[in-house]
Design a protein around this nucleic acid. Structure first.
Length: 450
DNA sequence: AACCGCAGCAACCGCCGCAGA
DNA sequence: GTCTGCGGCGGTTGCTGCGGT
């Protein structure tokens, strides 16, 4: 029997299913031969396609029995869904599709199947692979995962969802109060300029260890335990077990859910967290990423070392930023860093820092002890980093030691003008904010275009 | 030419939800 | 109510090709 098949990679081939060579593939109907694994051959594809043409989709376990294909039902289904389906689009994602994926990810998180449903002809696996690749690429480049506008959307969506699970998370947050809904409406991403002004995009990379400190510290400062899960680029890189069913809660997707703030920081799952364990990353929220949870989210017997560190409440023994973090600082022009702990300002990490910044600014504004300072760096050092934690001192020291001194980016955040003791001209702020967004967007677009 | 690192892709694995027995 | 099988989903791994050194 000759079957002409056109596989997903546009390869057309003729296979003789009945040929002796195929006997080992499809000739074990009802036999006890172990199921085959690994790449599919064109002959197997032909068999599967033939089967589906005759019997339709579904009942995948019957494929093996009826067609003799030495593949498990799951494998058949996967092969069909990802490669043989006639309605599949071939080739690379178009820019429009890429944009859509980013938007969808901001809305849904790692719900690849749902995203695939929104992208006709695309499979969840394709989207997943694309996203993971993209994550790595942006991470490597020190860019935010989301472009600035979508970044904020992700934040809002996460907050909305968090409120569903933690209704009392952050009642005073005007952005989230009264928005307890999972039904996220479609969002026009092009009209988020206001949001950009309110929540400027991340401009520079924070070494993950810094952010880590900030995050944990902020939790402690607010009387919260660190979350069980955390947003993490690394979450997909650690094969640890995870909690499933977080779809509605995105529990692991935002370490700051208890704060009503999406927080991004490296995985808690590194039991022996040295600062080399964390690759640098931008702290853009990755909704839905399911962070490893040490197997048991409620377990207290094996605390993440971060907790241990914070419990000890002192600088780590090896307070060196990861090599990659340093590398990022060197490579990324946008990483023109500021003085010391001022990297806590929102411009660095987008959502997280915007939130943290807002929170800290509120604190600072009510803290009489923080009077006007002659320099912004001082203001930040005192009203910001000090408010957070001792670890932030460490962070600050790391930055002051490793980051290039370039305070320009400090002035790129509009809200800085509202910060006590911050002498930033508003017009400069607005202007440079726009530049910042543009620069970031450009960098993002450039990366996306790669 | 050999080696290395990375990106992209395909496939597998484990878990979950659901339906039917 | 419990068990079992199936389909679906998301995370992860392994392979391959390519470019740089």
């Amino acid at each position: 029997m000759n079957i002409t098949i056109e596989t997903n990679d546009m390869m057309t081939s003729k296979v003789d299913v009945d040929s002796p060579d195929e006997a080992t593939v499809g000739g074990n109907a009802g036999g006890s031969e172990p199921l085959k694994k690994g790449p599919w051959t064109s002959a197997e594809d032909a068999i599967l396609m033939d089967y589906v043409m005759k019997h339709g989709e579904g009942n995948w376990n019957a494929v093996q029995k009826q067609s003799g294909l030495a593949r498990c039902g799951k494998s058949c289904r996967l092969r069909w869904a990802n490669h043989l389906r006639p309605d599949l689009k071939k080739g690379a994602f178009t820019p429009e599709e890429e944009r859509r994926i980013v938007e969808l990810h901001a809305k849904m998180g790692n719900k690849w199947a749902r995203m695939a449903a929104e992208l006709p002809g695309r499979t969840d696996n394709e989207i997943k692979n694309y996203w993971n690749t993209r994550i790595k690429r942006h991470q490597r480049a020190g860019l935010p995962v989301y472009p600035p506008d979508i970044c904020f959307l992700a934040s809002q969506n996460k907050q909305n969802e968090e409120l569903g699970a933690f209704s009392s998370a952050d009642a005073q947050n005007p952005n989230v109060s009264g928005t307890n809904t999972f039904d996220i409406p479609a969002v026009e991403f092009k009209n988020l300029e206001l949001n950009r002004l309110l929540y400027p995009p991340p401009l520079v990379e924070i070494p993950s260890n810094s952010l880590l400190d900030i995050t944990v510290s902020s939790f402690l400062a607010q009387g919260h335990s660190p979350p069980y899960g955390s947003t993490s680029f690394l979450s997909t890189m650690h094969p640890s077990k995870r909690i499933r069913g977080s779809e509605s809660i995105f529990f692991g997707s935002n370490g700051g859910s208890l704060l009503g703030q999406p927080l991004g920081f490296s995985s808690y799952n590194n039991h022996n967290v040295t600062y080399d364990d964390h690759e640098s990353f931008s702290c853009t929220v990755i909704p839905g990423s399911q962070a490893p949870l040490n197997g048991n989210s409620s377990s207290s017997e094996e605390l993440p070392s971060l907790q241990n560190q914070t419990a000890n409440w002192g600088p780590p023994s090896s307070p060196l930023p990861s090599l990659e973090s340093i590398d990022t600082l060197i490579q990324s022009p946008a990483a023109g860093h500021s003085e010391s702990g001022s990297d806590l300002s929102p411009r660095n990490s987008g959502l997280l820092d915007a939130m943290l910044y807002g929170s800290q600014t509120m604190k600072a504004s009510t803290d009489n002890s923080h009077q006007e300072k002659s320099s912004f760096g001082d203001a930040v050092d005192n009203s910001y980093a000090d408010l957070i934690s001792p670890l932030s001192h460490f962070t600050a020291s790391v930055f002051s030691e490793y980051a290039p001194i370039d305070g320009s980016s400090l002035h790129e955040f509009p809200s800085l003008a509202t910060m006590p003791g911050c002498k930033v001209k508003q017009e400069n702020v607005a202007t440079s904010s726009g530049q910042a967004c543009g620069r970031d967007s450009c960098a993002w677009d450039a990366m996306s275009a790669v």
